[in-house]
Design a protein around this nucleic acid. Structure first.
Lengths: 232, 232
DNA sequence: CAGTATACGTGTACAATGTAAACTTGTCAA
DNA sequence: TTGACAAGTTTACATTGTACACGTATACTG
């Protein structure tokens, strides 16, 4: 039976000396996600990762191609958290739920957006499954390949773009909002009156009845798609 | 009069020995943009930047705070290229034109998106002017602060998200599309039929009459905003 | 049980990066 | 002439990813 103890050292009773949990790609990636969640992408170094796994940095290379591979791997893990099969009668509600699930996953792991979008052609499995799933639902709803493509783009752009925006105004390690407050205090409201208004808009405790900003934009897009005639 | 020669060495006719163009923040940022456009963000190192300016890396620090400052600076330059005052009778056409201008600027300098959205609270002047300008036009159109805020978000998310998506499928230094082609050839169409269809959709020579994918999503959003009642 | 092979981890080293601190030099005012 | 100052250079260092050679515990083979 597998030992899923989080601590990396366990005890072998027969030999009576400490035995390390064996390293594995999965364990490396899990710890990498933890580090990045807690201390930011900057802190995810091979040495730090090795340290947290009670191992020298170079040991990681037996299980992982290199740092790039690790980055791909943790993105894959996060995107795997997205719920792609929410039960729903309509394509619209189903896509809406998936989009919200994606948004939540990205917020849980704020470093993901930036990584997903670094320009190259890696094929990250869960990312491909995700895209495939959105396209499939639009096609199943009767939309043409062209409309499905464009609809997918609009939805995904909104998810990534909006989440990035949200996160851009979060300071890592400033949960108390202290830095944010000083920022707001010294903001030049005279030069940027509407931006100032916008800032205050964001600070306002939002009515829990009211829809969030993310859903607002999402519905704009879904409305638009719904308005396009299906071709069957 | 200012010497705007791109070469960093000019000739002083009285002393008859080469005289370096003086370094300046502006010149540094210009060259930084050039390097990043041509060789990617990875290649923008202080040493490379110094080399291209015929100067040691450390000389830059007399004119610039550090690398982070340079990154902010080049983002500022690019966002400054966005046309914020396209003549137009309606808010909708005006915003549409600005959004397209922003999209174009981001495509000209593909590294910008990632930089704009790295999470922190720097205040990049042209970015603030840009946001202010969009908000102002929505407010002038009669929308409430809340709708203006959310409308702005939806538009900006689309611009950044969509452009990032586009660029994610571009390989830096693969203008011939060679890498892309091998990617397409070895793509697993059986496992991801709709993604495959989507890929082909992208490869198709687009009808010049037809609207681009960017405008398609943009109009979805603008339609949505237009459908919201103004409050005056 | 002895010998060996293999997988796993370590140690050391190196190149690339950002940048601090001290040094040099060209220019110009007093 | 001097001397102060700004602009660039030199040197050095810490941090990063990772190549390579080396040990060693575990499992397999006879």
């Amino acid at each position: 039976m597998y030992n899923v103890n989080l601590s990396s050292v366990t005890h072998n009773s027969s030999t009576n000396h400490p035995v390390r949990l064996p390293l594995s790609r999965d364990r490396i990636l899990q710890v990498a996600v933890d580090i990045t969640d807690k201390e930011g992408l900057r802190s995810l170094t091979m040495r730090k990762l090795g340290h947290d796994l009670d191992v020298e940095a170079m040991a990681l290379y037996r299980h992982v191609q290199g740092k790039a591979d690790i980055l791909d791997g943790i993105v894959d893990l996060v995107l795997g958290e997205i719920d792609l099969s929410p039960y729903s009668s309509s394509w619209r509600m189903s896509l809406r739920a998936s989009a919200i699930s994606a948004h939540e996953a990205l917020l849980r792991h704020p470093w993901t957006c930036g990584l997903v979008l670094s320009p190259n052609l890696r094929t990250i499995p869960s990312r491909m499954r995700y895209i495939e799933s959105i396209l499939a639902r639009l096609r199943a709803a009767g939309y043409s390949p062209s409309v499905a493509s464009r609809g997918y783009h609009a939805i995904d752009s909104h998810i990534l773009g909006f989440t990035l925006w949200e996160l851009g105004h979060t300071i890592p390690g400033d949960s108390s909002g202290e830095l944010l407050e000083t920022f707001i205090r010294q903001f030049d409201y005279a030069s940027f009156p509407f931006l100032g208004e916008h800032l205050l808009e964001h600070l306002k405790e939002s009515d829990p009845e009211e829809m969030g900003d993310f859903e607002f934009g999402l519905d704009l897009i879904l409305d638009g798609i719904e308005g396009i005639a299906v071709t069957r």
